[in-house]
Structure formats: C-alpha cells, structure tokens
C-alpha cells in the first residue's frame, strides 16, 4: 500500500496543481485527479510526451488517428488555448469544465458560438454555416441536394439573424439558443459527474489534501 504513495510523482509538462484547477472549474480536487489519469492515457496513446496531439485526440474520438473532422478540429483548437498545437493538462481540465453538468449555461453558449465561428471573426457567417452543414453531411449517410442545403441554411440563418445583417452575433446566438435549448445539449457530458468512478486516482490522492466531503 505504502509503496504507491510518493510525493515525487513525475508529472507531465504543463501539469497544474489540481487544487488550483478545482478552484477555477466545476470539478472537485478528486475529479481533477481522475481527469489527470484520463489525460495521461490520452496523451501517451501515440507520443508519450504528456501532451495531447491532434492525432491522439482523433484516435480517442474516432478510434482512428487519421480521421479528420471539421468539428473535432475546432474542438481541438479551442482546447488548445495557447495555440501551440497540443493540449496541456490545464487546458484540458479548464475546457472540459465547460462540459460539466454544473457549468454555467452562459459558458456553454459562448463555447458553442466560438466553435461555430470557424474563421474567428466574432460572428457566425452564412458561408460558415453552410460549410458546417456540408461537413456534417459528408460524415453521415444523409444525401441532400444543394438546393435543399441552401434552404436549410437560409431558413436557419433567417431565424437566427434577427438583425438581418447577414451574420449571427453572440447576442443573436444567445437568443437563438434560448429558443432552441437542444442546440447546446452536446455541450454537457453527464459522464463528467462520474469521472472519479471511471478513473480512481489511487496514487495522486496522497498528494493533495482533499477537503471535499
């Protein structure tokens, strides 16, 4: 038993104190420690350097390291806050915090907006929406004609772009999500509430005095 307890645990580069991360996110210290186990697994699946590379992210999502997907790319880019091509532990925890069932809905709405603002202009533009619909169709078995795609995009855009200026801003997006709450359903991962059961952290539990009850 004692042999598992070590204060000199080798942490990955970019490791951050679980107590600090727990302060900034909806996670408890134990949950952050459990996420560290998941992080170590994901970040060593191809290159064992303690950082999640895009191929490792794709491998975890699709069981295929080479499967490119517009939306997975966007998620990766948003998680990679420093924009250095890899996801560090702190970035991983803070970003996943948005997907926690207890995270504020406003954060989920903002994250989804940034996700769909492909070109980072501060707006979701019609062409971006069309590009995303086409990308979705490519990855599914749905075959829809160009005309119908245009109709779907037009209808959605006119519903969301209430100011009628040809782009959806964050305020319009917020109102649109309020009318269509299912749009951010995928921004909540109920699994995060059970993360300590899935990844019990026997080793790290000795490192932080966990004051949660």
């Amino acid at each position: 038993m004692g042999c598992f307890h070590s204060k000199n645990v080798n942490h990955t580069p970019g490791y951050e104190d679980p107590a600090l991360l727990a302060d900034e996110t909806p996670f408890t210290v134990s949950e952050v420690e459990a996420l560290y186990e998941l992080f170590k697994k994901l970040s060593s699946s191809i290159i064992d350097d303690g950082l999640i590379h895009k191929e490792e992210f794709q491998l975890a999502l699709f069981r295929n390291r080479n499967r490119r997907n517009l939306f997975a790319d966007r998620i990766f880019d948003l998680f990679d806050v420093k924009r250095n091509g890899v996801i560090e532990f702190g970035e991983f925890v803070r970003s996943l915090g948005v997907f926690h069932p207890n995270a504020p809905v406003e954060e989920k709405i903002k994250f989804a907006f940034r996700l769909y603002d492909l070109r980072r202009t501060g707006f979701i533009e019609r062409e971006e929406l069309k590009e995303m619909v086409i990308a979705l169709l490519h990855e599914s078995d749905l075959v829809i004609s160009e005309d119908v795609i245009e109709m779907i995009v037009d209808k959605t855009f006119s519903d969301a772009d209430t100011k009628g200026d040809g782009k959806i801003d964050d305020e319009e997006w917020k109102q649109f999500v309020a009318k269509n709450p299912s749009l951010i359903k995928n921004m909540t991962l109920p699994y995060l509430k059970d993360i300590t059961l899935a990844f019990p952290s026997f080793v790290l539990s000795s490192e932080v005095e966990n004051l949660e009850t």
Partner: peptide, 26 residues
C-alpha cells in the same frame, strides 16, 4: 426524407466530432 425544416445547427450538433463522450471510453 430531406429534413428541410430542420435547424442547421441541430444537424451540425449531431456530428461525431462534437461527441466528446468517446474520450471517456476505455
């Protein structure tokens, strides 16, 4: 059938790339 009346964002949100639950599968 073609989901003409479907919300485009609703369609997009079904992407497997947005389904992060697979990250937790063992």
């Amino acid at each position: 059938t073609a989901p003409v009346t479907m919300n485009a964002f609703e369609l997009i949100s079904k992407s497997q790339g947005l389904n992060l639950s697979s990250l937790f599968e063992k």
